[in-house]
Amino acid sequence: MAQKQEEVQIVPENRVYGRPALLTDRVMHYCPGCSHGTIHKLIAEVIDEMGMQDRTIGVSPVGCGVFAYNYIDIDWAEAAHGRACAVATAMKRLCPDKLIFTYQGDGDLSAIGTGETIHTCNRGESIAVIYVNNAIYGMTGGQMAPTTLVGMKTATSPNGRDVKLHGYPFKIAEMIACLEGVRYVTRQSVGTPAGVRRAKKALRKAFENSMEGKGLSFVEFVSTCNSGWKMTPVAANQWMEEHMFPFYPLGDIKNE
């Protein structure tokens, strides 16, 4: 009898967490366990909590995140590969009252789009740049990225990344942190509940900076690509902690 009384009633007043209002019903195309889904959720939550749905424009990249516009219910532009920061620059200059952010992967932002990224940072555009670094090209099938760790095997570094052949993994967050126009640089991850909570605060800060015209905010998400890494999602999260975090340490890099 007592046991039965303690059964939680599934009613709206008992609901403490659920699907964010700004996520569309569409099932995401991402692989099981992919960090993109969690990051999308955080963006949807923060925009909703800030009451900014009607004043936000996102810029999606080329890469796995290309279809972000199918999942978060805001206005979006899909940029050419690497050019999201240039697209966002014009949007913010022309619509300074809008929340403008880019959503880019490591290939998009730190390979083909390095020039646009760095100059947008240097101009101090008041946008938020969301950078998903999973050290591999996911959408094209697991090729080496600028951020691929030394020794890491990918489709184009089948024997592991060799610095003589491919150079060193690229830490663009540290690089842009030294630019005057950049206000906030932080590195986060969404593999654990605590990590997700911290990442959400970082995202909120980046979005608030954008609205306050405080210059550019850059939020890197050290992420997994379990399909590309050829691991289960749980193993990928563990591998990320053991191998990615030592090279890409989490926390604020610049916070002015």
Binding site: V8, R15, G18, L23, V27, S35, H36, T38, P193, V196
Partner: peptide, 19 residues
Amino acid sequence: GCASCAIVCPDSCIAVYRQ
């Protein structure tokens, strides 16, 4: 009802209730 599961869920398919 700590919501840890729902918070990390990449597909936002978990709703949490607490009483």
